[in-house]
Design a protein around this nucleic acid. Structure first.
Lengths: 207, 207
DNA sequence: TTGTGTGAAACTTTTCACAGCC
DNA sequence: GGCTGTGAAAAGTTTCACACAA
C-alpha cells in the first residue's frame, strides 16, 4: 500500500471538520462521496482516493455512515486520544491562541504558555497560566505536553524551538515568519501570515 | 511557457522573505541558488525551476544579485505597489492581526476593521478604526481596500464573505474554520488552526 | 440503480544531468 | 572551476472509467 501525501492528510482534516458540521443539521445517517465533496468543492474521486489509503469505509450503492466515518477519520488523525499543547509567546497572537475556541472540542487542550516577560508570570489568559521560559522542561514533563506553538517574535523563535526540542517536543506549529532549522525527528509546520497574503497580491496583480 | 503552481508562488514568497533577512547580515551582493535553497531546506533545483517560470535572473558562474532578485520577486508577487487590507471581526484573533507587525514593511497596510458590536465602533486598535459592518461598502470604496481578512466566528463568515464580494473585494484570507462558497472570480485562501494541528497529531500517532 | 473501490491513463511537479556562460 | 537555465526522466497526484456490491 502506498502512503498518503501531506495534502491528503490536510484534506482528511477538512473532511472531519465538515462531517462534524453536517452531522448537526443532517437527518440522514449516511452521505455519499459526491455530497461530501461538493461541500468542499473538490471531486468525489479525490475524496474516495484519499480514504483509499486507509481502508474501505463505505458501502457500495449507499455511501458512508457519517458517524463511523467521523470516528475513522478521528482515529487516523490521532484524535481518539487527547493532546496537551503549549503556546510560546504571550504577545497579541499568542494571547489570541490562548482564548481560541474550537481546539478543546477536538481533543486539543492548551495547558501552558511560556514568555520572557516577568510581568506576565503566573498571570492567566484564557484560563492558561503563563510561565517563565526557564520552567519549560519542568512544565512540559509535569503536564505531558507533546505539541508546541511558537508565537514569539522572529528573533526568539529559533532559540525557543531548540529549547522545545530539548524538552522532547516532537511537533511544532510555527507562526514566526522565519525558516527554523529543526532536527529530522521533529515535525515542524509553518503558518506565515505575510506569505499567505502574498499569494493574494500575486493573484490580484495577474488579473 | 508553462504557468507556475500554487506551491511555486508560496515558495517565491519564502525566497523573498529569506532574501530580505539575509541582506541585513550578508556582506556579498550575490547568492547562489544552493546557498539560498539551503536556508529553506529545499533543493537548488527546485529554486531554479521556480524562478524559471518567470525569466532569467541569475548569471552563470556567479549566482543571483540579492538586490535585483528581491526586486524581481517583489514585482512578481505584486508588492511593487501598496495594498490596503481590512480585517472583519475584532475579536481576539482579529485584534491580534490589527497589531501584527511585519505587514507594513511588505507594502500591506491594514486600514480598517469591521465588527457587529456597537460597543467597539469608532474605537481604535493598533491604530486602526473599527467600523460597523453596514459601512463596509462606503469604507472599502473610500479607502480603496482590495484585500480582506475574515476573522469572525464560524456562523458569521459566509455572510461576511458575501458582503465583501458585493463590495468588489477579489481576494480574501479566511481564518474561520468553515469552507466558504466564493464566486470563481474571487481568490479565497484558508488558514485553519485546528487543521494545522491535526497534521501534527497525525504525525505523532504514526511515530 | 446507486455509489464505492481501484487499476490504469493523464497530468503535474520534482529531480537529474548537462550544455553553456562567467 | 563555479553556477545558471532547461530539456528529459522520474516521481507523485489527480482524474477517468468501470467492475462489483447493496
Amino acid at each position: 500500500m502506498k502512503k498518503p501525501s501531506k495534502d491528503t492528510i490536510s484534506r482528511l482534516a477538512l473532511y472531519l471538520r465538515t462531517l462534524q458540521e453536517l452531522s448537526k443539521t443532517r437527518t440522514t445517517t449516511t452521505i455519499s462521496s459526491q455530497d461530501l465533496a461538493r461541500e468542499l468543492t473538490i471531486s468525489s474521486d479525490q475524496l474516495r482516493r484519499d480514504l483509499w489509503y486507509f481502508g474501505q469505509f463505505g458501502r457500495r450503492g449507499v455511501g458512508y455512515s457519517i458517524d463511523s466515518l467521523k470516528n475513522k477519520l478521528s482515529q487516523i488523525l490521532g484524535l481518539n486520544k487527547s493532546w496537551n499543547v503549549c503556546v510560546c509567546g504571550a504577545g497579541n497572537l499568542g494571547s489570541a491562541l490562548l482564548t481560541y475556541k474550537g481546539f478543546k472540542e477536538q481533543n486539543l487542550t492548551i495547558v501552558a504558555c511560556f514568555d520572557v516577560d516577568p510581568k506576565k508570570f503566573d498571570k492567566k489568559k484564557g484560563g492558561v497560566t503563563i510561565y517563565p521560559l526557564e520552567d519549560m522542561k519542568k512544565i512540559v514533563k509535569s503536564l505531558t505536553i507533546e505539541i508546541a506553538i511558537i508565537a514569539t517574535p522572529v528573533n526568539a523563535a529559533q532559540a525557543v524551538m531548540e529549547q522545545l526540542t530539548q524538552c522532547g517536543i516532537k511537533a511544532i506549529l510555527n507562526f514566526a515568519p522565519i525558516t527554523l532549522a529543526a532536527p529530522a525527528a521533529v515535525k515542524l509546520r509553518n503558518v506565515d501570515l505575510s506569505t499567505e497574503l502574498f499569494n493574494l497580491t500575486y493573484f490580484l496583480s495577474q488579473a
